[in-house]
């Protein structure tokens, strides 16, 4: 009965296997075996104390329960932490996705609002219009080119472009 219990003892407490040929290092149990076995119901109260091997078993059970319990608890805690982390990651991913979608929507809105057609329509509604003519002014000495309309012979002073032959009514091709 004591053999299996000894298998689970801690290594440092493990004793060499006993044989009948070797003297016991623990005289007390050996002595106890030599005592005559009395009927159980007649055993005195002092004799019913837990035997050392029984105490070791109880200790082992407590220790094992503690270890196993701790492991189970640890596993549960780890799983809970993992689950929490998973939820957090999932929530963060959803948040990132939502924000990305919001960003895209804002980008689209910005592009829509900055579309030249919308701005032009808005400006027209508010009484603005494009200029009829565009004149480019050049600062003196700024390089080649001449001030707009400076050369009457070129016909460029006429903003309506009516000086050339094309406007005289001769049909061009």
């Amino acid at each position: 009965m004591s053999q299996p219990a000894r298998r689970f003892e801690p290594a440092e407490r493990r004793t060499p296997p006993r044989t009948s040929a070797r003297p016991s290092a623990r005289p007390a149990p050996a002595r106890r075996r030599t005592q005559p076995v009395a009927p159980a119901h007649k055993r005195p109260a002092a004799a019913r104390r837990p035997r050392p091997s029984h105490r070791r078993s109880i200790g082992f059970v407590v220790l094992a329960s503690t270890v196993v319990g701790s492991m189970v608890f640890g596993i549960v805690v780890v799983n809970v932490l993992l689950a929490q982390t998973s939820f957090r990651i999932g929530e963060a991913e959803r948040r990132v996705e939502e924000l990305s979608e919001d960003n895209l929507e804002l980008v689209r809105e910005q592009a829509t609002l900055s579309a030249p057609g919308r701005i032009s329509a808005w400006a027209s509604r508010h009484g603005m219009r494009l200029p009829d003519d565009i004149r480019i002014l050049h600062a003196p000495g700024s390089g080649s080119g001449e001030p707009a309309g400076a050369d009457p012979s070129s016909g460029t002073t006429d903003p309506q472009g009516t000086m050339g032959s094309g406007a005289k009514g001769d049909p061009p091709t």
Partner: peptide, 23 residues
């Protein structure tokens, strides 16, 4: 062509335009 030919309606004040009409 733009200055004195068929393309005078393409003239732009201050700029010399080169171009050709087609019908």
């Amino acid at each position: 062509a733009v200055q004195d030919g068929t393309g005078t309606n393409a003239q732009i004040p201050g700029y010399q335009v080169a171009g050709k009409t087609g019908t």
